[in-house]
Amino acid sequence: MREAKRRGANVCRNGFRSLLIVAAFGFGGAARAQIPPSPAEIAAYDALHLAAYRGDLSALRQAAVTGNGLEVRDGQGRTALHVATHARQREVMRELAKAGADTRALDAQFYDAITIAAVADDLETMRAALAIGGDPRAITSPYRGTALIAAAHLGHDGVVRELIAAGAPLDHVNNLGWTALIEAVILGDGGPRHVETVRALVTAGARRDLADRDGVTPLQHASRRGYAAMVALLQ
């Protein structure tokens, strides 16, 4: 009887964890909080935000000439820099930084330019965000994570390697109780890019012994899912 109750509790816990994953990241796996400007929002933009989205440097310079409005927000809390990052307008990002824009600003969902580019798997734009003063160690997202955790969860291995080189924290634990290494396993598909993500993290020295809130390590998660290549890296 006691053993049956224990198994029942484990089933309930695992079911709750599955619901938590779906609620946090949606059925498609990508964090729902990453919201690029919609067509309706873009149509309503004027001045700085519109110039940032279009990559119109002349209009941007005119709008930013006094330095006023650099931190004006749209309905999702995006500054012109966030809009430029979503639109992959790297020259605009550099121009905004020169004008004095806050390169570490967070939008309404607590994402900065680095994390926006990391989630988009946009390595060049992320490099631009780093170069203008973005912080690879910043705590971002509603899950109190980092750009590295977001990229690892999606298997963006090139972005992961770049963030590691930039000094992103390897072992930060988000408010779900997960590190970048754990997310690469439990939210990954076990495919080549997630395997390379795990390889990059392990090679850089990410702690393989850090378990989730249920005491399950990355190796145990990989073993349960039959991710043989990850198991080999994590042993």
Rank of each mutant, 00 (worst) to 15 (best):
M1R: 12
A4D: 09
K5F: 12
K5P: 02
R6G: 00
R7Y: 07
G8A: 04
C12T: 10
N14A: 14
R17H: 10
L19S: 05
L20E: 11
I21Y: 00
V22G: 02
A24F: 00
F25K: 03
G26A: 04
Q34L: 14
P37I: 05
P39K: 05
E41S: 11
A44C: 04
A47P: 02
A51W: 01
A52N: 03
A52K: 02
A52L: 00
R54I: 01
D56E: 03
S58Y: 01
L60K: 04
V65L: 11
N68L: 13
G75D: 09
R78M: 09
Q89N: 07
R90G: 07
E91C: 09
V92Y: 08
V92M: 04
E95A: 15
A97D: 03
K98H: 13
A99I: 09
G100N: 02
A101M: 13
T103P: 13
D107L: 10
F110A: 15
Y111P: 04
I116W: 08
A118Q: 09
A118D: 04
A120D: 15
E124A: 15
T125K: 06
A128F: 06
A131K: 11
A131C: 06
A131F: 07
D135F: 09
T140A: 02
S141H: 08
G145N: 05
A147I: 11
L148F: 14
L148K: 13
I149L: 15
A150T: 10
A151H: 03
A151I: 11
A152E: 01
H156P: 08
H156I: 01
R161M: 09
E162C: 13
A166K: 08
A168M: 07
L170K: 09
N174H: 05
N174V: 02
L176D: 01
L176Y: 04
G177A: 08
W178G: 02
L181A: 03
I182R: 00
A184M: 11
G188P: 04
H194C: 05
V195S: 00
R199V: 09
A200V: 07
L201T: 08
T203D: 14
R207D: 15
L210V: 15
R213I: 11
G215Q: 02
G215L: 06
V216T: 15
P218T: 14
Q220V: 12
Q220F: 00
A222D: 01
G226Y: 11
G226R: 08
Y227L: 14
Y227D: 02
M230C: 10
V231N: 05
V231L: 08
L234A: 12
